[in-house]
Write a protein that binds this DNA or RNA. Structure first.
Lengths: 116, 116
DNA sequence: CGTAAATATTTACACTCATCTATGTCTTAA
DNA sequence: TTAAGACATAGATGAGTGTAAATATTTACG
């Protein structure tokens, strides 16, 4: 049983980096989100999904964009989903992923924000 | 001899994630920046420096905030500096670090931005 | 049912990374 | 010159990670 908050829920907690020091626990909550994004393949996956028409894409749209095996892409999608950056929805044989733009916006505000 | 661009120079290249797919080379340029931030200790270091009065802090201000050895903090500062997120300046015995807020702003725009 | 297609899981491995201890370098002061 | 303090580097180690191959699961359709 796992009742922890997903990383995406932890990012809305804090004021921007430049405003006040992050506590240790806040930093430990946010780092996994950045870690999930900090990979070239996952960055491209996020941008492919986020910029895809309708704001979603199925795995079949994504596999072809990489020189990687299908299980590897599936693994990266799982990491992004576990971090809360992608939503998953199964429709028939296909699985559609959708970007959590709210999570991306919160993360961006944390990194680059100035005001409270 | 190392003539490569620092990661911080690579982040100003691209439109936001949600706007159009990132190319492989763009993603490979940006991922190291996120990787540098994707650690709880380095996140706290960045926020400690960025929110410190005058926008800078010396290592002596930072060491005490962690239960880590001085070489470990020095290592993390080096990683952030290599990524282009921190500037280094030696003044007398002390070394002062300053946050590259422009780099943070560019990164934030890439992650959370909407317009071109 | 049986088969094919789309996606996920498992296992294994090479590689990277965060951390420590020990040591080095540089600066200031006595 | 010697000593002490601030910070960096080097080397070692245990934990974590990206990838592929093989296999499993789920769904659709004869």
């Amino acid at each position: 049983m796992n009742l922890e908050l997903t990383p995406v829920q932890a990012v809305a907690c804090c004021s921007p980096l430049s405003r006040e020091p992050l506590s240790a626990s806040e930093a430990e909550g946010i780092a996994p989100l950045l870690k999930a994004l900090a990979d070239p393949v996952r960055l491209r996956l996020m941008s492919l999904v986020a910029s895809h028409e309708g704001g979603e894409a199925c795995v079949c749209d994504l596999n072809g964009a990489f020189d990687l095996s299908q299980p590897t892409i599936s693994h990266h999608l799982k990491v992004l989903h576990a971090a809360g950056l992608l939503e998953r929805e199964k429709r028939g044989v296909w699985v559609y992923y959708r970007a959590r733009t709210d999570a991306l916006a919160n993360l961006a505000a944390l990194i680059g924000g100035h005001s409270k």
